[in-house]
Amino acid sequence: MMGLITKSRIKSPWIVHYCCGSCNGCDIELLACLTPLYDVERFGILNIGNPKHADLLVVTGPVNKRNERVLLNLYHQMPEPRVVVAVGACACTGGIFYNCYNVLGGIDKVIPVDVYVPGCAARPEAIIDGIVMALDKLAKIK
C-alpha cells in the first residue's frame, strides 16, 4: 500500500510556491515553467495554493525578519514527507541582498533545504531540473 502511495506521489507531485522577498525574477520563471513552452504538467506537477495538499515547497528570495514566521508556518502545515527547493541565488544564500539590514540570508537559516537551484534569475530549465532532483529525494524518504 505504501509503495503505491509513494509511486503516485512521485508521478504527480504538487507544489506550493512562496515568495519570501525575491525580486520577482525567479517567481515569474517558476510560473513560466507552467506555461506551454516548458509545461511541467507533463510530469504531473501542479502549482496549488494550499500547503496542506502539497508535497514540494518551492521558495524564492531571501528570508527576512517578517516573513520568517510565514515560511515556518507553511512548512509545518505541509504533511510529511515533504521536500524544500530553494530557487535562485537569494533563496540559497541571500544573493545580492546579503548585506541588506532586513535580510537574514538564505532560507536554510529557517527551514531545512533539500535542493538548491542557483542562478539570478534561475532559468526555467534549471528549476525543472531542481524539482526532478527533489523528486528523487522524495522517493527515498521512508
Binding site: G21, G25, N64, F97, N99, C100, Y101
Partner: peptide
C-alpha cells in the same frame, strides 16, 4: 513581507555596483 532595505544597501555599495542592485 518582502522588504529588503535596498535604499540603505545602495549607500553601502560603490555607485557603479548599484546598477546591479537596482536591477534587482
Amino acid at each position: 513581507y518582502m522588504h529588503r532595505g535596498i535604499e540603505k544597501a545602495a549607500e553601502r555599495n560603490p555607485y557603479v555596483n548599484n546598477v546591479f542592485l537596482c536591477e534587482r
